[in-house]
């Protein structure tokens, strides 16, 4: 990769910022750069990262998915109830994945062939699914047995399974995005949809598939989340959708589509995780979290805006 290509990478600013931040924290906060703490940070961002990797594809194709918070709750509800009747982890996972994929399909069909823009479809879903899970679960609090929590608690080769799941999803998305026709089409469709239509790319099909992918990721994320917290509540993952979008955008994927990378959502999610961790380690009261997050998002997007303005002028 040439030097210019590295400098043009969308996730570069956030990655540099993340590295500087980690370096600074390692010096100032002794408890930060320790294996247990870093592992804890990673485990905390797994759920957001998994969904952000898929929503990244949705945003790259010039759409958006804001139904993820409610969809994760619905999938967790399905997972929990199957786990309580059948037991184990794999059958519940299949149930959660199927639920996620189905809702993703509905989102996709409505947003493409149904001509309702994805922001409306998924916002409607956000309301409807949350209402549905509140109705179905109500005040029910489900406690999962340990054998159904392997995606959140289990370990393999001394590494938490949740982190392995994230690495696998990341690798898979990398292959899909770089080496499959679908992966390339996502960038083409988001970069210039008129050109993509002219050369005969299946616009609707590509966009539909990204939303199905996003639904699937919610199913997987639900399995990990429920495994981690062990308890199902109908209000789970409220506000999750905005965290996911923040991770994608912070990482450097452009909200207008076509420009971004696979690394961006993960870098964005880890960045948020590291900052929240640093606040906790330095005993900053939790009420400042949202404030810091807001400043961070605005700083990152302004920086990116400034950068695009400058590079555009140079051209």
């Amino acid at each position: 990769m040439s030097r210019a290509a590295i400098l043009a990478r969308p996730e570069l600013p956030s990655l540099v910022f993340l590295i500087l931040l980690v370096a600074a924290l390692s010096v100032t906060t002794p408890s930060f750069f320790t294996i247990p703490n870093l592992q804890a940070v990673l485990e905390q961002v797994v759920v957001v990262s998994i969904v952000a990797l898929a929503v990244n594809q949705v945003i790259l194709s010039e759409q958006i998915d804001i139904s993820t918070g409610s969809l994760v709750a619905v999938c967790a509800f399905v997972y929990g109830n199957i786990a309580l009747t059948v037991g184990g982890s794999w059958v519940p996972l299949l149930g959660a994945l199927a639920t996620g994929a189905f809702v993703g399909l509905v989102n996709g069909v409505l947003s493409t062939y149904g001509r309702v823009s994805s922001i409306i479809t998924t916002m409607g879903m956000l309301f409807a699914l949350r209402g549905a899970v509140l109705l179905a679960a109500g005040a029910q609090v489900l406690n999962l047995p340990p054998e159904s929590r392997i995606f959140g608690l289990g370990e393999a080769f001394g590494v938490p399974i949740s982190i392995i799941v994230l690495v696998v999803v990341f690798a898979l998305m990398g292959v899909v995005s770089r080496h499959t026709v679908f992966g390339r089409n996502v960038y083409a469709v988001g970069g210039n949809d008129r050109a993509a239509r002219t050369v005969g790319l299946p616009l609707n099909q590509v966009r539909l598939m990204t939303l199905v992918l996003s639904g699937l990721s919610c199913g997987l994320a639900a399995a990990v989340l429920l495994g981690q917290i062990g308890q199902l509540q109908a209000t789970a993952a409220t506000g999750f959708e905005l965290k996911v979008i923040a991770a994608v955008v912070l990482g450097g994927t452009s909200i207008t589509g076509g420009r971004g990378s696979n690394l961006a959502p993960v870098v964005g999610a880890v960045l948020v995780g590291v900052i929240l961790n640093a606040l906790t380690l330095n005993r900053v009261p939790g009420i400042f979290e949202l404030f810091v997050l807001g400043v961070l998002i605005l700083a990152a997007v302004s920086f990116d805006g400034l950068r695009t303005r400058l590079t555009d002028r140079r051209r």
Binding site: I64, I245, A246, F288, L290, G294, I297, V301
Partner: peptide, 20 residues
């Protein structure tokens, strides 16, 4: 900047200030 991104940031910022 895209309004969605800006107001997503101020969405967190404004309520963050209110909490603080």
């Amino acid at each position: 900047l895209h309004p969605l991104v800006v107001t997503l940031g101020t969405f967190a910022l404004f309520r963050g200030i209110a909490f603080a």
